[in-house]
């Protein structure tokens, strides 16, 4: 295949992966969602625009797989008060771009996320840009090494957040 069609195939594969990732969250299949992350994978939602450092400055989410698992166990608990009744959300993924990889064996991608959540009788919209670092896995699939969600209102005033974006 030509270089162009390789790139097109890669973009299609990435898009399919990102759409599935969003759908797993929409369907509250949190355990399946977590399985998309590499063992060293991180889910990060910075607390301000341009934040470079998650270790010396606070973040809204900064979950490794162990913390993701705790978050998910809590989401499955019958008395998680902030999720009674359970939230519903729809995530729309768009503006997908596959970038030149920074390193061998890594796929860098960008997308735009619009999530509308209905929880506790109130509807909330979250909008942000997502930066992906993916590593190729079996059968043309991927694992997530980093999913970084930069909310457009990162520095805004937030209500409690219960599910990942």
């Amino acid at each position: 295949m030509s270089e162009g069609s390789n790139a097109a195939a890669a973009a299609t594969a990435v898009a399919a992966f990102l759409h599935r990732e969003a759908r797993l969250l929409d369907e509250r299949r949190f355990e399946d969602w977590q399985a998309l992350f590499a063992p060293d994978g991180v889910y990060w939602v910075p607390a301000r625009e341009g934040q470079a450092d998650p270790l010396h400055e606070v973040s809204i989410f900064y979950d490794d797989r162990v913390m993701m698992a705790a978050r998910i166990r809590r989401l499955r608990h019958p008395r998680i008060h902030a999720e009674i009744p359970p939230s519903r959300a729809v995530r729309s993924v768009s503006n997908i771009e596959v970038l030149e990889p920074a390193a061998e064996g890594v796929v860098e991608a960008r997308s735009v996320l619009l999530m509308t959540e209905f929880r506790g009788g109130a509807q909330t919209a979250y909008h942000g840009r997502v930066a992906w670092r993916l590593v190729p896995a079996a059968k043309g699939d991927f694992l997530i090494r980093l999913k970084r969600v930069d909310l457009v209102n990162a520095e805004g005033m937030h209500r409690g957040m219960t599910v990942p974006f």
Binding site: V45, H158, G160, T162
Partner: peptide, 12 residues
């Protein structure tokens, strides 16, 4: 954090 596993129940 607004996404704290603890704070969110208090806010609710």
């Amino acid at each position: 954090s607004p996404a704290s596993l603890i704070l969110t129940d208090d806010l609710e």
